[in-house]
Amino acid sequence: MIREFTKGLWKENPIFVQVLGMCPTLAVTTRALFGFSMGMATLFVVVCSSVVVSSIRRFVPRQVRIPMFTIIIATFVTAADYFLKANFYQISKALGPYVPLIVVNCLILGRAEAFASKNGVGRAFMDALGMGAGFTCALVVLGSVRELLGAGSVFGYRLMRDGFTEWVVMILPAGAFLTLGLLVGLFNIINSKKRGAVRAG
């Protein structure tokens, strides 16, 4: 059970390993806070939809499962969207269309199809929680790096001294690609080092 949770954090990290959900990953990570909000919204949707999909998996005919998944996901996305709009209006405005677009985030449909529809509720819950947490962590890391270099702060706390020149490119789309590419590279380096150590030992 614990492994179902932890695999999403590292071994099967949705962004750095599976490279899923690139659209929000690249678009909203101009600030660490936006990355975090996006991650939490996605976490909510993936957990709820996985649990529902898993609990009704015996009653859904195979032929119509994809429309079913989509409706379930869309329901929770709408809820998340309205929740953000009602309680965190500024963040909702900053995330723009990317909150409703969680519907088409392949991470969520992917978990529903590949995991939740084949496993029990408990395992599906842990899996979704891990995936959502892994997604959130990756978005926060990406957002922190971009915010630090692009605006000199992280989560709004100023870390650079006053003379710091902002790297405008980091909050532009090009900066998103650069940072993501370098982070994926770093991830692979760490993983291959680990694998090498395991083999040697």
Binding site: T165, W167, V168, V169, M170, L172, A174
Partner: peptide
Amino acid sequence: AFLMSAFPIA
């Protein structure tokens, strides 16, 4: 090109 988009003023 990188510097141009990172530091457009400079």
